[in-house]
Amino acid sequence: MNVPDESAPANPVATVRAVLPSLTPAAQAIARLILDDPGMVARSTITEFSAASGTSEATIVRTARALGFAGYSQLRFALAAAVARHEPERLIPGDLGPDDPLTDVIAKVARAESQALADTAAQLDPVRLGAVVEAVAGARRVDVYGVGASGLVAADMAQKLMRIGLPAHAFADAHLALTSAALARPEDVAVAMSCTGETPDVLAPVRVARKAGATTVAITNNPRSTLAELADHVLVSAGRETAFRPGALASRISQLLIVDCIFVGIAQRTFETSDAALRATREAIEGFRADPRRRSRPS
Results as ranks from 00 to 15, higher is better:
Met40Pro: 07
Ala66Arg: 07
Val259Phe: 00
Ser299Gly: 10
Pro4Ile: 05
Val153Asp: 04
Arg289Lys: 14
Ile219Asp: 09
Gly287Thr: 15
Leu152Met: 10
Ala137Gly: 04
Glu187Arg: 05
Asp5Glu: 12
Pro38Tyr: 00
Arg140Phe: 01
Arg90Asp: 06
Glu89Arg: 13
Arg90Gly: 03
Leu249Met: 14
Arg43Ser: 13
Pro101Asn: 03
Asp100Leu: 05
Leu152Trp: 01
Asp275Ser: 15
Phe288Arg: 15
Glu57Arg: 13
Pro25Leu: 13
Arg62Leu: 06
Ser299Phe: 14
Pro98Ala: 11
Glu89Lys: 10
Ser22His: 06
Gly247Met: 11
Ala284Asn: 04
Leu117Met: 12
Leu230Ser: 06
Ala118Pro: 02
Ala149Ser: 13
Leu33Met: 09
Thr215Ala: 09
Ser225Ala: 11
Ala137Ser: 08
Leu96Ile: 12
Thr215Leu: 11
Arg295Lys: 12
Gly97Glu: 14
Thr220Pro: 11
Arg282Thr: 14
Val189Phe: 06
Ala174Thr: 14
Leu117Ile: 12
Arg76Tyr: 00
Ala122Ser: 08
Gly39Lys: 03
Ala172Phe: 02
Phe244Asp: 00
Asp291Thr: 13
Val16Lys: 06
Leu129Asn: 02
Val234Thr: 08
Arg111Met: 02
Leu117Trp: 01
Glu241Thr: 11
Ala118Tyr: 02
Asp143Cys: 07
Glu134Arg: 05
Pro93Thr: 07
Met162His: 08
Val127Glu: 12
Gly54Val: 09
Val234Gly: 03
Leu124Met: 13
Pro205Lys: 00
Gly265Lys: 05
Asp36Thr: 05
Ala170Trp: 00
Ala18Glu: 10
Ala112Gln: 04
Arg65Met: 12
Asn2Ser: 13
Ala52Val: 04
Glu198Gln: 15
Pro126Arg: 08
Leu23Tyr: 05
Ala290Cys: 13
Ala280Val: 09
Phe271Leu: 14
Arg297Pro: 03
Arg163Leu: 08
Thr242Trp: 04
Val234Ile: 08
Ser194Tyr: 01
Gly138Tyr: 05
Ile34Met: 08
Asp99Phe: 09
Val202Trp: 00
Pro12Asn: 07
Val153Arg: 01
Thr59Ile: 01
Gly213Ala: 07
Ile60Trp: 01
Ala52Lys: 12
Ala84His: 09
Val144Ala: 03
Glu283Asn: 14
Ala267Gln: 05
Gln74Met: 15
Arg294Ser: 15
Ser180Val: 02
Gly247Trp: 02
Val132Thr: 07
Asp104Lys: 07
Ala80Ile: 09
Ala10His: 11
Pro200Met: 12
Ala80Gly: 11
Ile262Asp: 00
Asp100Lys: 04
Val142Pro: 02
Ser150Thr: 07
Ala81His: 06
Ala276Ile: 10
Asp143Tyr: 06
Leu124Tyr: 05
Val153Leu: 03
Ala182Gly: 15
Ala243His: 14
Glu113Ser: 07
Phe77Glu: 12
Leu178Ser: 13
Val132His: 02
Thr226Ser: 13
Ala64His: 01
Thr273Val: 14
Ser254Met: 10
Asp100Pro: 01
